[in-house]
Write a protein that binds this DNA or RNA. Structure first.
Length: 368
DNA sequence: CTCCCGGAAA
DNA sequence: TTTCCGGGAG
């Protein structure tokens, strides 16, 4: 079953396959551009969320009018016929699902922005060839039950991430300082045990060095010795200085507020950038996928390489695959949940399947 | 794919 | 003693 957004954010089932052509007129495309179907008598609501599909929104764009968009489209889906290239449409504002409406049944699970100059809502009908919904991406069966089981296991066992996670950094500070603290904590936390990172942050804080101007004027060796023994402290000390300088010169002492700008900072890659967006800016651009999330999602069979059943090979692949079906309200909590689970039970080596409530039924990898 | 690094576990 | 754990960068 597919779903489609119509006016007033009502989410109604669509007939199974369909490409709707939007012709004529010059109005921007809106929710009401989608053909609306009344709920069918085949009780669409009774399906469990595990069985329902995630609509994959495809927009076919006319080639000449929107050059940049077409480039992106062509890059994403090479095997489509040259006549009709499409882009999977992610999280465009106008098309996001209303949170309180049938969220568990159908999920937007879209994150990649249309990277062209225009968002979907800015395209005119002339520029759009057609819009369709397909049901090609299905959430894994029973994912909600599995998640619930993991939550139960987590609530009875303490993981390092619970007390030391870097999202706790500087929680008592004013907003701007807090954001910087989160950024620094994220930077230091990579390749580092949570306790060690926590200690380093405390030492920086005690020395008043959790601020860009202070770091900028402090000797690199001093910083180095304060953050020791976090992993790769030498590189991190120098990255910290560079980041402080960038924050001061380009962002008025604040931290960058977009994913792209965060990624430009030395030592900040996709994992940390998403974490900082989530925690510091409270702006969910994507799932923060670290090695635990990567490993566990593959063990559970929750992610795969596009159009295959193969495991994903990198955290980035996992993130994209997971975002295709996981409801957005789970994007933030999934990280601490699975990290803790991965630290204590579903460990990379010798996972404790015997005490894992889910291993018998659901786990494909650490199976007994 | 390799390197960066310290500490913990095997 | 060796192996593993953690992201990013070249």
């Amino acid at each position: 079953m597919s779903f489609c957004l119509v006016r007033n954010t009502a989410l109604l089932p669509l007939v199974p396959t369909r490409i709707q052509t939007i012709s004529s007129a010059k109005m921007p495309i809106t929710r009401s551009s989608f053909k609306r179907e009344t709920p069918s008598e085949t009780n669409p609501g009774s399906e469990g969320s595990g069985g329902s599909s995630v609509p994959e929104l495809r927009v076919f764009v006319r080639r000449k009018r929107v050059k940049k968009t077409v480039e992106v489209i062509a890059k994403e889906v090479k095997e489509e016929s040259s006549a009709q290239k499409f882009v999977k449409l992610p999280d465009i504002e106008d098309f996001s699902y209303s949170k309180d409406h049938m969220y568990s049944q159908s999920t937007p699970a879209k994150t990649v922005h249309l990277t062209g100059e225009k968002s979907l809502s800015q395209l005119t009908r002339k520029e759009i060839k057609s819009v369709s919904l397909s049901d090609s991406v299905r959430p894994p069966p029973n994912w909600e039950k599995v998640l619930e089981g993991i939550r139960k296991m987590r609530s009875s066992e303490d993981a390092p991430v619970d007390s030391m996670g870097c999202e706790k950094a500087g929680s008592s500070l004013p907003a701007k300082e807090r954001r910087f603290a989160v950024l620094v904590s994220s930077l230091l936390s990579s390749q580092t045990k949570d306790q060690v990172n926590h200690g380093a942050i405390q030492r920086l804080l005690q020395n008043g060095l959790l601020a860009p101007d202070a770091i900028d004027t402090t000797n690199e060796d001093t910083i180095k010795s304060l953050i020791y023994p976090v992993g790769f402290y030498t590189r991190k000390a120098s990255n910290l200085k560079k980041i402080a300088k960038i924050c001061l010169s380009k962002y008025d002492g604040d931290i960058p507020s977009s994913l792209e700008e965060l990624l430009l900072l030395p030592g900040i890659g996709p994992k940390m950038a998403h974490l900082v967006m989530n925690v510091a800016w409270n702006n969910v651009q994507g799932i923060c996928v670290d090695t635990h999330v990567h490993r566990i999602c593959n063990r559970l069979g929750w992610v795969s390489r596009p159009r295959t059943k193969q495991k994903t090979r990198t955290p980035e692949e996992t993130r994209e695959s997971l975002q295709l079906w996981l409801p957005k309200e789970e994007w933030v909590p999934i990280n601490p949940l699975l990290v803790g689970f991965g630290q204590t039970i579903c460990t990379p080596l010798r996972p404790r399947c015997a005490i894992c409530a889910e291993s018998y039924w659901f786990c494909f990898d650490g199976r007994l």
